[in-house]
Nucleic acid binder design. Structure first.
Length: 437
RNA sequence: GCCGGGGUGGGGUAGUGGAUAUCCUUGGGGACUGUGGAUCCCCGGACCCGGGUUCAAUUCCCGGACCCGGCCCCA
C-alpha cells in the first residue's frame, strides 16, 4: 500500500456520494432560504494576499492560516474566512445599488489542530447585508440565520444570544476599565473558566471592586432581548439612556415577525475579533453541549479599513462541521433517498442500439437512465440495476425492438408490463413527480 | 504548539517473538445463454511508517505521521 500517496492531509475530508447527498441537501436549503430573503450568491478566490487578512486580524491569527510564498515571493494564503474578500468585492463596485445582500458557500482553510467540530478544510455559509445602519438590518440578518436553521430542521433546537460591542465597552468604561477592548477577551471566556479566575482578571483590568458584583451578575443573566432595557436599568448601572440599549431592545422587537424565537441578551457574547462594532450574536445548540452553530455581527469599519470607503455592514458565518454534529445529534441529518433511476437492460447485443435510443429518450424527458457500458448477460445487468438502486428495469430484446415496446419492471415488487415507449415515459415521469426530489 | 486515547484487507474482527495471519462482510467473476435481491463455487485484498532489542518483530521498546477527543485559539 503506497501510504504516502494514499494518505490525506491531516484535517481534510473526502465526501463519498452517500455523504455528498446529505451535504448537497444542506447547501440547497441555504441557497433556497437566501433566495427567499433576496440574497444573491457570490464567489471569490480561494487564495488571497496574506495582507488582506493581516489588515483586520493581526499576526497571531496568521499563524493559523495556510500561508506560503509563491514563485514571485508574494505572501499568499488559503483564505480562512469570507469577510475580507466580500468586503473587498463590495468596495470594488461602487455602482451597486444599496442595500447589497450577498451570500456565499465556499471552502475555507485554517491551520489548527483538528478536533470535534473542527477540521482544517471546511465549508462555510456566509450572509452579509451592506449599506443600512439600522436595527431593521440587524433583525433581517438574524432572521435569515434563524430561517436557515429552521429549514434545516433545527426549529426550536437553538437559541440566539445577542449583545452589543459598543454597549459592553461603555459599561466596562463606566466600571473603571481604562481600556475596555482589553477586557473583552475576559468577558468572552467568562463561561469557560472558573468564576474566581474571571473576577481576578477583571480586577487586574481595572474594574472597580464595587462594580465587580454588578458585572458578574450581568454576565450570568439571560433575559429576553426585548426587556434588555429594564434589566440593565435595574442592574445598578448608570446606562439608562445609552442608545445601544434601545438599539438592542428594538432588534428584539423587530425579530418577532421573523420565525426566530428564543432571542436573549447575553452580555458574555463579544465575539473574538476586533472588527465588530455593534450588535454581535451567536446561535447555540440547545441539545447537548451548547455549541455555537453560527455567529456574526456588525462590522461598520472593516470595508473602510480595506478600501477607504466607509460602508456599514452586518453578517454571519456558519460552518458545516459543527452544523453536521448538531444536526446529527438532533436526528435531522437524514439520509435522503437515492434518485429514481431507470436501468435499461438489453437481452442481446442486437438490441444495443435500440436500448441506447431508449435511454436517450428517457433522459430527454428528464428521467435519469443508466445502461450497461459492457455487453453482459441480462441477468448480470439486472443485478447491477438492483445494486445501483434503480427503481425500474427497462428490458428490451428482440420482441420489444420489433414492436417498439419496452418491458417495464418495478424492482420493489417484481411486477412488470410491456408497453410502448411513450407509455413507459408517461409512467416514469409520474414516478419522478411523486418522488419529490 | 501542548495533553490523553487508538491502529490487523474497503468495513467489522481473531490471533501470535518464528511456519501459508482467522472469520464475517464488501468488491470482482461464475453456476443462470430473456429477468435482480437467495444459495453455492472461484478470485482479489491487511499487520501505519521508521529505528531499536532479538537468531527472528505484525507482536516488545522508542520516535514520527495519521485518526478520535481535550487544551490554546476560534475570523
Amino acid at each position: 500500500m503506497p501510504s504516502k500517496v494514499m494518505d490525506k492531509l491531516k484535517g481534510f475530508r473526502d465526501f463519498y456520494p452517500e455523504e455528498m447527498r446529505q451535504r448537497r441537501r444542506i447547501f440547497n436549503v441555504c441557497r433556497e432560504v437566501s433566495r427567499l430573503f433576496g440574497y444573491e450568491e457570490i464567489s471569490f478566490p480561494s487564495i488571497e494576499p496574506l495582507e488582506l487578512f493581516r489588515v483586520k486580524s493581526g499576526d497571531q491569527i496568521l499563524d493559523q492560516t495556510y500561508s506560503f510564498r509563491d514563485k514571485g515571493a508574494r505572501e499568499l494564503t488559503l483564505i480562512p474566512e469570507a469577510t475580507p474578500s466580500v468586503s473587498r468585492m463590495l468596495a470594488e463596485r461602487k455602482d451597486l445599488p444599496r442595500p447589497v445582500r450577498w451570500f456565499s458557500l465556499e471552502k475555507y482553510w485554517r491551520y489548527e489542530e483538528p478536533q470535534a467540530g473542527r477540521t482544517r478544510e471546511f465549508y462555510q455559509y456566509n450572509g452579509d447585508l451592506f449599506g443600512p445602519y439600522s436595527e431593521l438590518a440587524d433583525a433581517e440578518i438574524i432572521g435569515l440565520a434563524g430561517s436557515i436553521l429552521d429549514n434545516l430542521g433545527l426549529g426550536g433546537k437553538y437559541e440566539f444570544h445577542v449583545s452589543h460591542r459598543k454597549l459592553m465597552e461603555n459599561i466596562l468604561l463606566k466600571l473603571g476599565a481604562p481600556r475596555p477592548a482589553d477586557v473583552l477577551p475576559v468577558i468572552d471566556r467568562f463561561h469557560k473558566i472558573p468564576e474566581s479566575a474571571s473576577v481576578e482578571k477583571l480586577e487586574q483590568a481595572g474594574i472597580r471592586s464595587d462594580g465587580l458584583d454588578t458585572l458578574v451578575r450581568m454576565l450570568k443573566a439571560r433575559v429576553n432581548l426585548e426587556t434588555v432595557d429594564s434589566f440593565l436599568g435595574n442592574a445598578g448601572l448608570d446606562i439608562a439612556g445609552l442608545p445601544e440599549v434601545e438599539w438592542l431592545k428594538m432588534v428584539g422587537m423587530l425579530l418577532k415577525p421573523y420565525s426566530v424565537k428564543n432571542v436573549i441578551f447575553d452580555a458574555s457574547i463579544v465575539r473574538g475579533f476586533a472588527y465588530y462594532t455593534g450588535t454581535v450574536f451567536e446561535a447555540f445548540d440547545l441539545h447537548e453541549e451548547n455549541r455555537a452553530i453560527l455567529g456574526g455581527g456588525r462590522y461598520d469599519n472593516l470595508v473602510s479599513v480595506i478600501s477607504g470607503t466607509s460602508i456599514p455592514a452586518i453578517g454571519f458565518g456558519m460552518g458545516d462541521v459543527v452544523l453536521e454534529l448538531v444536526m446529527k445529534a438532533s436526528g435531522v441529518w437524514t439520509a435522503t433517498e437515492g434518485e429514481l433511476i431507470a436501468a435499461v437492460c438489453f437481452a442481446s447485443e442486437d438490441c444495443v442500439t435500440y436500448a441506447l435510443d431508449l435511454a436517450s429518450q428517457l433522459r430527454k424527458h428528464g428521467i435519469p437512465a443508466l445502461i450497461s457500458p459492457e455487453s453482459r448477460s441480462l441477468s448480470s445487468q439486472m443485478k447491477d440495476a438492483s445494486r445501483h438502486g434503480a427503481r425500474f428495469a427497462l428490458i428490451v430484446g428482440e420482441k420489444e425492438k420489433e414492436r417498439g415496446t419496452v418491458t417495464v419492471k418495478r424492482m420493489s415488487d417484481g411486477s412488470q408490463k410491456t408497453v410502448t415507449i411513450g407509455e413507459a415515459i408517461t409512467v416514469l415521469t409520474g414516478e419522478l413527480n411523486h418522488s419529490g426530489e
